[in-house]
């Protein structure tokens, strides 16, 4: 006579303990933070883990650490907490906007920035904003910690660069230039409660003369992973935001797209709207940089 297999739950207090648990159980263990993706996947029986490792008891995953140079955000910091952090909100409004777009207020109270990243959805809202910001992902594992640029973290739909025994402890936002701003926009068919059909994150720094010093643009939901539009940097650098630059920017965004047709949008639509949102996000980021 068979029996139902039991799920176990652990809430370790150190990163080392998490790594030990992960190494012991293997792929049937799942990191549990906000649970807003994980519990849905379990409810739908898409995954059936045997161990949940709750990382919220580890202090470094729950803190936002601001220094003059960087801001380190714990992987288990929730969207609501990011939105309430005035310093972060004024320095990186685009990242906060991106995370705050994930789900309802109820979901915001639970969903974490690390979870959004590790779920590795091509449509994850925070990821284009993090890529535009040149954020780094801090990973703990059996061999200590390592850093990975945000744009290299996801390697395909639902897949990350995490090796066995590794997990994300935090995300680091770099030092910003004096006059810089960021922004994130997404397209969904309703006003709320949808997954991005297209997402666009932009980060712009300006020279004293008002031209672009540097810029980074990233798109979500238009390729197997969120991706940086490298050409956008060249198009913007040294220039002002005139119609010609915007047209070139839109074209670069269109060209960067390798989307699919699915229940959320068509290839044609995603490609076109990527250009639209890229321009709109850059304009907002530019405005914010000017207002600094």
């Amino acid at each position: 006579m068979g029996t139902v297999t039991e799920l176990k739950y652990e809430s370790p207090e150190t990163a080392q303990a998490v790594v030990a648990l992960l190494s012991g159980v293997g792929p049937m263990a799942r990191i549990f933070a906000g649970g807003t993706d994980l519990l849905v996947q379990m409810h739908e029986e898409l995954i059936e883990p045997t161990l949940l490792i709750d990382i919220k008891g580890i202090p470094e995953t729950r803190e936002i650490d601001v220094t003059a140079d960087e801001i380190r955000i714990g992987a288990a910091v929730t969207g609501a907490e990011l939105g309430e952090h005035q310093e972060l909100k004024s320095r990186w409004p685009g990242i906060v906007e991106a995370v705050e777009l994930i789900g309802s207020y109820q979901v915001q109270g639970r969903a974490t920035i690390g979870g959004n990243l590790c779920n590795a959805s091509p449509a994850a809202d925070s990821v284009p904003a993090l890529i535009a910001a040149a954020a780094k992902v801090i990973i703990a594992g059996p061999n200590g910690t390592r850093e990975v640029p945000a744009e290299e973290f996801s390697v395909g739909p639902g897949r990350t660069c995490l090796a066995a025994g590794e997990f994300v402890t935090s995300i680091v936002l770099p030092k910003q230039n004096q006059r810089s701003g960021d922004a994130y926009l997404r397209f969904i068919p309703r006003t709320e409660m949808d997954i991005a059909v297209v997402g666009a994150g932009a980060c712009v720094s300006l020279n004293d003369d008002g031209t672009c010093a540097s810029a980074r643009l990233a798109l979500g939901a238009v390729a197997p992973t969120a991706k940086r539009v490298a050409a956008a940097t060249d198009i913007l650098q040294g220039n002002r935001l005139d119609d010609g630059v915007l047209a070139a920017l839109a074209k670069a965004a269109n060209d960067a797209c390798a989307p699919i047709d699915d229940k959320r949008g068509t290839i044609e639509f995603r490609t076109k709207v990527a250009g639209v949102l890229a321009c709109r996000a850059v304009k907002i980021a530019w405005q914010r940089a000017e207002n600094r």
Binding site: P189, R190, T191, E192, M193, D194, I195, D262, K263, R264
Partner: peptide, 16 residues
């Protein structure tokens, strides 16, 4: 069926 939940079966929410 691809949209078997309220996430992708898009009924109007209050802000719509």
């Amino acid at each position: 069926l691809q949209n078997t939940g309220f996430l992708d079966y898009r009924m109007p929410v209050a802000s719509d």
